[in-house]
Write a protein that binds this DNA or RNA. Structure first.
Length: 269
DNA sequence: CCCAGGCTGTGGCGATACAC
DNA sequence: GTGTATCGCCACAGCCTGGG
């Protein structure tokens, strides 16, 4: 079986890294009990894991050399930049989000549209779209930290069920993490899927970006769960700062939308 | 023994990415 | 273009458990 070393990967571009990994995975034998949909994830993680500690150490050195992004102000700016980019993009996408009243009446796609309840129609589609989109925002914010790797951004590879790989404070073993928004994001049927995806990896973690959503709906048997500050702390990121930026961002999106007047269209008169 | 609350599984809706 | 899988969140019901 062939393994990769950090020094093989570091000089390469993300896509060249992907190519190298994919050339190497043929030598990996997958245990029979691993389901076929997860073979690729298993192989990638097997080949990659030995290289990860040095890879992350290298990221930490680079970060330190240019004055770490984890320093209070730098960190806040980095989080704000991600939130700003997100909200700008989202606000731009909103006008195309809600179908015209004529279309809604002709073919209502849910009960709110059927009833002509415009406020509910619009709020529903915006908040659903927003919560879906924010799911990937947490991954990008996590990637600010030098302790984390984004398989997609850093390796142009998707590891099923793994949003981020982190090596907390540069010590310990790389941990494969699935990030959700809230503790109750996952529901029963999907819970098993997350479990099998994460159990491929010896070091794994199920994380919720916020401790909201009531109680966990992920059983976590054999898989550690963390939420909110406990999660972001692993990355050296300050939860209070994050929460503050996220709240501002959501309110900004709401204001931008209300200013267009669309929310009350059809209700006002 | 009862009840509240946690955990788990089922079912539902909407958006999107990707394969065919 | 159509179908499928995967992502998001919500509601509910049944079961278990621990405390009064």
């Amino acid at each position: 079986m062939q393994f990769l070393q950090a020094s093989d990967l570091i000089p390469l571009s993300p896509s060249a890294r992907a190519q190298l990994v994919l050339e190497t995975i043929d030598s990996v034998k997958v245990p029979r009990k691993v389901r076929s949909e997860l073979h690729l994830a298993y192989k990638i993680s097997t080949v990659l894991t030995p290289a990860l500690p040095d890879f992350i150490q290298h990221q930490i050195q680079i970060d330190a050399a240019q004055g770490t992004v984890l320093e209070r102000i730098a960190q806040s700016n980095a989080i704000a930049a991600e939130c700003d980019q997100f909200s700008n993009q989202f606000i731009n996408s909103v006008p195309g989000l809600v179908r015209s009243k004529a279309e809604r009446e002709a073919a209502p796609s849910n009960l709110y549209e059927m009833a002509g309840a415009d406020l509910f129609t619009v709020s529903n589609s915006i908040s659903r779209k927003l919560s879906t989109a924010m799911g990937s925002l947490w991954e990008r914010i996590a990637d600010i930290s030098p302790y984390s790797i984004s398989p997609e951004r850093d390796f142009h590879l998707k590891i099923t069920g793994v949003d981020s790989i982190i090596m907390s404070h540069g010590s310990g073993l790389p941990t494969f993490v699935q990030i959700k928004t809230q503790r109750n994001t996952l529901t029963g049927s999907q819970s098993n899927r997350s479990k099998t995806e994460l159990k491929l990896h010896d070091n794994r973690l199920f994380a919720a970006a916020f401790c909201t959503g009531g109680s966990w709906t992920f059983s976590g048997s054999g898989i550690r769960r963390v939420c909110g500050a406990d999660f972001w702390e692993l990355l050296g990121l300050d939860y209070e700062t994050l929460e503050s930026h996220v709240k501002q961002m959501i309110l900004k999106i709401q204001t931008a939308y209300m200013d267009t007047g669309r929310v009350t269209e059809g209700v006002r008169k």
